[in-house]
């Protein structure tokens, strides 16, 4: 019973802190809405796969909210169904790259010396190699037909910038008084890392995760546009890619077909990035104790 109350308390404080930044809170609400539509929506809205020749390229109406495509299919149902794969791949990539960045960034900052030199040297090198061409060239060699594998592949190459940020954060935390005090009290490495450092780095970790999420959406859709990811099911990237390769973007009536997936991706990216402003407040341990 106590635990439930604690959790509810924690949630309440978090939400209250998040409302302090209005733009960030709107971003948070928008992100939640998109997630709900993409993850739960498919169970309620069936994917329209029937070709209806009399309803090709219709503008939005009460029957078809986002209009219809070149085969008369409902675009709204495609948008609802097209989000989960994109978000899943991005989440896998973001988890992996945040994990690598946080683990090795902290390690680098605390170990110092040769370990730090090696990790930072490697990071610098990978950071200078243009990522998108590297991914595209690699994708030409490796078959990326599995969503989880694609996510891991993206995550494996997108940690360097995050690692540098985490390392510099850890370096500055290392010298703070409260860490010094914990060390003087001989509280042990586990206590210092998980009770003192991680809560203070939580803001960084969460923001790194959201930024990695948007970066993964960027590269993923880019690879789809280049035709390098043979994903069979329809998702936002594939919708744009098909409209692109079939020349629909040069066709005036096809506007809704090309605009809706673009808007979906743009809105998702914008909401997630705006949400970081609120996350910054919600995970800041200093603000939390003040409430």
């Amino acid at each position: 019973m106590n635990m439930i109350r604690d959790i509810l308390n924690w949630l309440g404080t978090t939400l209250k802190l998040m409302t302090y930044n209005k733009a960030g809170f709107i971003g948070f609400l928008a992100t939640c809405t998109i997630l709900v539509i993409c993850l739960i929506g498919p169970f309620f809205i069936p994917l329209d796969t029937r070709t209806k020749l009399d309803k090709i390229y219709q503008p939005p109406s009460t029957e078809h909210w986002f209009g219809t495509d070149h085969q008369g299919r409902d675009i709204f149902s495609q948008i609802v169904h097209g989000g989960k794969d994109v978000i899943y791949v991005a989440a896998v990539a973001a988890f992996l790259s945040t994990f690598i960045a946080v683990t090795f960034g902290t390690l680098s900052a605390f170990a110092g010396g040769a370990v730090d030199g090696f990790i930072m040297g490697l990071t610098d090198i990978i950071l200078t190699i243009p990522q998108f061409p590297l991914l595209a060239v690699l994708a030409a060699f490796i078959k990326l037909d599995n969503l989880t594998f694609l996510g891991l592949f993206l995550g494996l190459l997108s940690w360097p910038a995050l690692l540098r940020a985490v390392r510099s954060q850890a370096l500055s935390l290392k010298e703070r008084d409260f860490v010094e005090a914990a060390r003087a009290l001989d509280l042990g490495a586990g206590h210092i890392i998980f009770r003192e450092l991680v809560p203070n780095m939580m803001t960084y970790i969460v923001i790194s995760f959201t930024l990695a999420l948007t970066a993964a959406v960027y590269t993923q859709v880019g690879l789809v546009l280049l035709g390098l990811v043979p994903v069979s099911s329809s998702n936002w990237g594939v919708m744009i890619s098909l409209a692109w390769t079939q020349g629909a973007i040069f066709f005036r009536d096809a506007m809704w077909r090309i605009m809706m997936p673009i808007l979906a991706i743009a809105l998702f990216q914008l909401s997630v990035i705006t949400m970081t402003r609120s996350l910054e407040l919600a995970f800041n341990p200093r603000l939390r104790t003040m409430v």
Partner: peptide, 22 residues
């Protein structure tokens, strides 16, 4: 904040769609 969060290739496609076609 809007232009820096939308992927650049999508902005490219938007330029074609709006300035060129629509």
């Amino acid at each position: 904040s809007v232009v820096s969060s939308v992927p650049n290739y999508l902005i490219g496609i938007l330029l074609v769609v709006w300035l060129g076609v629509q």
